[in-house]
Write a protein that binds this DNA or RNA. Structure first.
Lengths: 133, 133
DNA sequence: CTGAGAACGATAATCATTTTCAAATTAGAG
DNA sequence: CTCTAATTTGAAAATGATTATCGTTCTCAG
């Protein structure tokens, strides 16, 4: 066998899945798991998150304060992309076909093949935009 | 007076401005400045980059390998965006209007206002794509 | 039940970035 | 030009998130 299924593995997946739309750091996840009585080292949390990211179950988001992770349902890919508000930090999932023409253009004219799982657009959500006036 | 104008300040700005479309790390900038005979410490490079970013002269890009900086002419925005190849790590600077319809769509339908300076699309460049077959 | 291989966790190592602080630099006043 | 106070610098130490190490523990096919 190539892979063992461990209780830590399940625990990390379950914990990040429980958060759904919120982004959490590795440290937050570790703290939460420990407060539930799970015995999980921070290194394992990082290892699991990396594996989950490779398999497309989790999005990794880079920020000034370090990396954040977010659960990502398998079926919502392809037409789905991510927006992150620079104001409130919230990550918005948008599921619409508007990106397809852009992806096609980049492939044909610029020979670049987008990975939607990894791509995040930055900007301001309506609330923060309004608040700044 | 609130601010002194130093030669290091001018040197950092001139150096990153000379790169225009390329992204450079703080270490690369420092090396280049030193190879030109400038006496500049790495801490000062970081300090100047931070100041330049605050003033909107420079665009900071976060990657797995650390931060990259790119000179940003005030007028050349909107139509330009960044692609990063997950294979070779190269950052491609694309200047075309193809993103405009998407931005407009996001504003009108999803009430989200994109910041092109922060946004980076991830994927595979033609070379890496080909090499993987 | 067993053992080889996989995963674990504590801790050390890494490395980009930030902070510290004495010395050097700047610019306005005299 | 000279003096001085405030700012900036750079070498080195500190920080802090992430990764690597390695002996121990766990998993599961046989």
């Amino acid at each position: 066998m190539a892979t063992y299924i461990t209780k830590q593995q399940k625990a990390v997946l379950a914990c990040i899945e429980a958060h759904r739309d919120r982004c959490v750091s590795a440290a937050e996840l570790a703290d939460e798991l420990r407060s539930r009585g799970e015995r999980v080292g921070i290194a394992t949390v990082y290892r699991q998150l990396e594996k989950l990211e490779r398999h497309g179950h989790v999005h990794k988001v880079l920020t000034e304060e370090g990396a954040y992770y977010q659960y990502c349902a398998h079926d919502a890919l392809g037409n789905c992309f991510l927006l992150k508000c620079e104001g409130c930090g919230r990550i918005v999932h948008v599921d619409c076909g508007q990106l397809i023409p852009l992806y096609r253009h980049l492939e044909q004219e610029h020979h670049f093949f987008i990975n939607p799982r990894r791509t995040m657009l930055y900007g301001r959500c309506a609330v923060c935009r309004e608040a700044e006036k």
